[in-house]
Simulated assay, not measured.
Amino acid sequence: MRLPSWLSQHLAALRALLFFTVALGLAYPLLLVGVAQIPGLSGRAEGSLVEKDGTVVGSALIGQHFTDADGNPVPRYFQSRPSAGGDGYDPLSTGASNLGPESVADTLPDPADPESGSQSLLTQVCARSLAIGALEGVSGARPYCTTDGVGAVLSVFRADGLTGAVTRAVSVNQACPATPFLGTYEGATVECATPDGDYSGGVITPVRGDAPDTSPIPADAVTASGSALDPHISVAYAALQAPRVARERGLAVADVTSLIEDHTAGRALGFLGEPAVNVLELNLALDARA
Rank of each mutant, 00 (worst) to 15 (best):
S5Q: 14
A13M: 13
A13Q: 12
L14N: 11
L17N: 12
F19R: 15
F19N: 10
T21R: 07
L24V: 12
L26Q: 09
A27T: 14
P29E: 12
L32P: 10
V33S: 11
G43F: 03
G43V: 02
G43Y: 00
R44C: 08
G47Q: 05
E51D: 04
K52T: 14
S59F: 02
S59H: 03
H65D: 15
F66K: 07
D68K: 13
G71E: 07
N72W: 09
P75Y: 04
F78D: 07
G88H: 03
Y89I: 08
S97C: 04
N98P: 11
P101G: 14
A105C: 08
T107V: 15
S116H: 00
S116R: 04
S116W: 00
Q119F: 13
Q124A: 00
S129Y: 02
V138Y: 01
T146R: 01
D148W: 10
V153A: 06
L154V: 11
F157V: 08
D160F: 11
L162R: 15
G164A: 12
V166A: 02
V172R: 05
N173D: 06
E186H: 12
A188L: 04
T189D: 12
T194P: 08
P195E: 07
P195R: 03
S200E: 04
G202W: 10
T205I: 08
S215M: 02
A219Y: 08
V222P: 03
H232N: 11
I233G: 00
A236L: 08
A236D: 14
A238H: 03
L240S: 00
Q241F: 05
V245C: 07
D255V: 06
E261N: 06
E261F: 01
R267Q: 15
G273S: 09
E274P: 05
V277F: 01
E281P: 00
L282T: 05
N283Q: 14
N283T: 10
L284Q: 09
A288D: 15
R289P: 02
A290S: 13
